[in-house]
Design a protein around this nucleic acid. Structure first.
Lengths: 160, 160
DNA sequence: TCTACTCGGACAACTTGTGTCCGAGTACCG
DNA sequence: CGGTACTCGGACACAAGTTGTCCGAGTAGA
């Protein structure tokens, strides 16, 4: 039960992309975060597939958020990178073995699965309640009001 | 972000072990659930290490809950089998790269990590709120009042 | 039209989870 | 009291998912 490490990178990328007007190349995002450019590219592809970011090809291309940061939840990013499959899969153990339950009596989900899925839902709801804009605000509160603008200026600067 | 499959088996085992007076061998639990005996043994070892079940060696040995089912939460079982490590690990990305934050300004956890950990806490709380006894009650409600006693009789019967 | 720069998916290496096995230890039975 | 059969426990292979990397397709700009 460990979350993919790329989720952290993707979240950081979305936060710094908030408020960006021009596309930012993946290589520049990787340099900024000091992580593998090739691997970060893969995570950004996941965000692109999910429709969270828009990719612009060609010179002066890069990635850009498709909508306002307040309209993108943390859950969106997590599911885009890590997959939206359920964390718990019920293999219907009750229908196996010598005292197997009748399939007809299994219209309702297994009680164990219900508990796990409820917890899963709570987890997702907590992530859905926070938007990227909320996170950016927290960063500003923690690191000062001029931290994010400085980052955006660095990202927007033309190639060294 | 997928939960270990052994968690499901361990939960089913704990539910059927509830109310058992005599130890039940791992092989019998495996036969009942129609799963690999060798692999289920490993999961039960995890439960034993966590102190949830007590192992009795020798003939007519097996596993037994160490305390009442109402005193064992689903979270206990999940953490015993799957590990109690956090689902999200913060690698302190903010302290890396060209615009790295000062370590002195990082006394508080990263805002991103805080969000993830809050969701993690919500997930664990939901699992902690449900005990094995609660699950057993749900099973009785779903499968009839005589379902669990029949299972216990089958498990307690001497080897074929 | 050409060039340079971008993303996108296909291709390996590795850590983690899955599955299995045999040895150490103990209760029962003769 | 000794032997035996049964139990758990940890050490040992196998497979899958994740991590990491690469090169080709496509496009904006000069």
């Amino acid at each position: 039960m460990k979350l993919s490490g790329g989720v952290e990178w993707a979240l950081h990328c979305c936060v710094v992309l908030a408020g960006m007007q021009r596309p930012v190349p993946a290589a520049r995002l990787a340099e900024f975060h000091d992580v593998s450019a090739s691997y970060l590219a893969k995570q950004l592809q996941g965000l692109s597939r999910a429709g969270l970011v828009r990719s612009v090809q060609g010179q002066s291309g890069g990635y850009l958020l498709t909508r306002a940061a307040s309209e993108i939840t943390v859950l969106d990013v997590v599911e885009a990178v890590d997959g939206d499959g359920r964390t718990f899969v019920c293999t219907e153990v009750r229908q196996r073995g010598p005292l197997a339950a009748e399939p007809a009596s299994c219209t309702a989900p297994c009680p164990i699965a219900r508990v796990m899925w409820n917890a899963d839902r709570a987890w997702r709801e907590a992530l859905r309640a926070v938007s990227i804009a909320d996170v950016a605000e927290d960063v500003t509160r923690a690191s000062g009001t001029e931290a994010l603008p400085r980052v955006r200026a660095w990202l927007g600067a033309v190639a060294r």
